[in-house]
């Protein structure tokens, strides 16, 4: 077991889930309730990482984050670090490729809250912020939790994008999925097997959690 790679993966997955939480909630609410023009286009854009081959997404992120790119140069000027082949770049890439996994379940959860419930909160005197905290979030939390579980598990297992953007720098960008690949390439079957089994178990728990939370949400509105 490559503990360093595992720790890095857990760090990346936690950071992704934490950063995505407010961003995805905001996006999901907007997508669930807005009828503004451009909503469908934004929704399609968010879903794009689901259908793009990871290497294609990774390639474009590599271009977008590279030292020649505006974003890469800006980041270098601000932090003195590069986005590609660094943990920061990996986190940025992770946020992008996890966006559909975070937004979709949350969007479904918020869309399931009847408009009248939110309106009842407003006429009861609750501000928009109070309505969010006391009504919307408690009702949508199974969807929010499911989204976080999905993102966490997906980040641990992501390979293509991580390899393209981060490479395989131990302690910086070498995640557990890359470590498994390295061990398999080096014919170190027992290490690859134990790490794979760990990821398999974790993914199963995450999917189980998502499914149970989904059922709970469905039951609430029956």
């Amino acid at each position: 077991m490559d503990w360093q790679a595992l720790a890095l993966s857990l760090q990346l997955a936690s950071a992704t889930a934490l950063v995505l939480l407010p961003l995805a909630i905001w996006l999901a609410r907007w997508l669930a309730w807005s009828s503004a023009r451009g909503r469908s286009a934004l929704e399609a854009l968010i879903l794009l990482p689901l259908v793009l081959p990871p290497t294609v997404l990774g390639y474009y992120l590599l271009l977008g984050f590279g030292g020649e790119s505006m974003l890469g140069q800006l980041y270098h000027a601000l932090s003195g670090r590069t986005l590609v082949f660094s943990f920061d770049g990996l986190l940025a890439a992770s946020l992008i490729f996890n966006l559909p996994f975070a937004v979709q379940p949350m969007q479904r959860a918020f869309a399931a809250i009847p408009r009248e419930i939110r309106e009842a909160a407003w006429v009861s005197g609750l501000s928009r912020w109070q309505t969010f905290l006391r009504i919307e979030l408690p009702l949508a939390w199974p969807g929010v939790a499911a989204a976080l579980a999905l993102c966490f598990a997906h980040t641990l297992g992501e390979f293509g994008v991580v390899l393209m953007v981060g490479g395989s720098l131990p302690g910086e960008t070498k995640t557990i999925a890359i470590a498994i690949y390295d061990q398999a390439q080096a014919f170190n079957d027992s290490a690859a097997a134990s790490m794979s089994a760990f990821l398999l178990g974790l993914s199963f728990v995450a999917v189980l959690l998502v499914s149970r939370l989904g059922r709970r949400r469905a039951g609430r509105w029956d």
Binding site: P114, E116, I117, E119, A120, A121, W122, V123, G125, L126, S127, I135, P138, L139, R220, W221
Partner: peptide
């Protein structure tokens, strides 16, 4: 004025009780 400031009591057709 937003609904919060109008001080109306509103009974919705399907009641819109907070289910939780």
């Amino acid at each position: 004025l937003p609904p919060q400031q109008r001080r109306v009591g509103f009974v919705f057709q399907h009641y819109a009780l907070f289910p939780h």
